[in-house]
Every structure is written in structure tokens, then in C-alpha cells.
Amino acid sequence: MRLKLIACEILYRELCASLARSPHQIDVEFLPKGLHDIGGAGMRDRLQAVVDRVDESLYSAVLLGYALCGMGLAGLTARGIPLVLPRGHDCITLFLGSRERYMEYFTGNPGVYFKTTGWIERGKDLDQLGPDSFYRKTGLGLTYEEMVEKYGEENAQYLWDQIGGYTRNYGKLTFIEMGVEPDDRFERHTEREAVERGMGYQKITGDMRLIHRLVNGEWNDEFLVVPPGCRVAASHDDGVIRSEKSS
């Protein structure tokens, strides 16, 4: 099959490694990481524009290197060829290899923040989203220093206490090793950051199985195939997403 893959660059190394061995011919387009941060509707519109640009005469399906991503995929519509995406809340499902493993780790580790090569090296935080960023647009992304400058010391202290630093309640950084890293630089980077921020640190081994299945065309019930004329919807159950007729 010839397939088109539209993916978040957070999966860059993993997808490239997997694509190299796919039995199919796959053209890939990576989009900036962190699109969920522009809000569900904004992310969906951006993805839809990319999906709509695909020359459907060339491909059997469009693969999506995404999950539900904070409702960013909800409403995404398949035009003339199917859309295929893994069932999951976000990319951590793809890194850990299954929804079950993600839920188990998430439940057992409250306040965990995950790091992978893509999160660390692709783009600088979410600056690449520019003025569309939710944090930028609402003023929630300000640093303490920026708050002091804009609102004065006394106000800044109050504001920081209320809304400062969206990761402030996280207690642990977990590095997911996927087996595509050149050496231990990303792991060390995460560990160093954990120490600097007074957070716990853990390294766990990821699982490439969902990523392989996506690019190998092994779309079992861990994937949603959205037929032409239908769109992605949140199912709010264990299946995470479903397809529905596009109105």
C-alpha cells in the first residue's frame, strides 16, 4: 500500500525508525509538537487543513501519528480515503505500547510528567506555536519575572501563587526509553531537570508495538479506522474514540 502519515513531531525518531522497516511505502509529514495547546478546535482545524491537502489519488489511507490529544482530534473528518489512528488519550499510549499500560502507570504515579527524545529536542517548549498558544493567549504562560514586570512585585506574588507554572503540581519526571536513542543524553537531561526542580525521577522502557502496527498496516481493535465521510469522536469509554457520520 502507499500511505500518507501525518504525525506529531514528538514521535519523530520513533516513527522514522519504524517507517524504515514498514512493508508499505509511506510519505510522512510532521507537524509541530504540542498542538493540543492551541485548544481542541484549533488543533482539529490545523490537522483538517493538512488532511484536506492530501492528494487522495495517491494513497490508500491517511495514518495519524496522534491520539485524542485533549479533544484535538475530535471532529477530524475523513474525506475520500480512510483515516487510521491509534485508540488512546495522548501520545503516552503510543510510547508505552498500550492503553492498559498507560492507565496502570498513570494511576500508580500521580503527578507524573513524561519525557522522551521528541519532547526534549523538538522545538523549545511550546514557543513554536507562537501567539496561538493557549498559555500565551491567556497570560497563563508568564514566568514569575514577566509577572513582576507587568503587574508589580506584590501582584506577581499573588498571581504566581494562583496560576504560576502549569507543571507545579507534578512530582515526578519519567523518561521513556524507546530504544531509538543514540546514547544516554536524553535520559541524563531528564534526570538533571528532575534534580534541579526537586522532582522524583524514573526511567522506564517504552514499547514500539503500537507505532509498528500503525505503519505496518496491522490495524486491529487498538486502532480506529474512520471511513470516508465520517469523523473522529470521543467515546468516553475504554475505546477512547469512535467514528461517527459527519453531518
Binding site: 491567556t138 497570560g139 499573588y158 496560576i163
Partner: peptide
Amino acid sequence: CEEYFVPELLL
């Protein structure tokens, strides 16, 4: 109307 940001609203 996006004339105020979250900090202004909180203050």
C-alpha cells in the same frame, strides 16, 4: 473579548 488576560481577571 480577549482584552483582558487571566492575570488581569484574577487581580
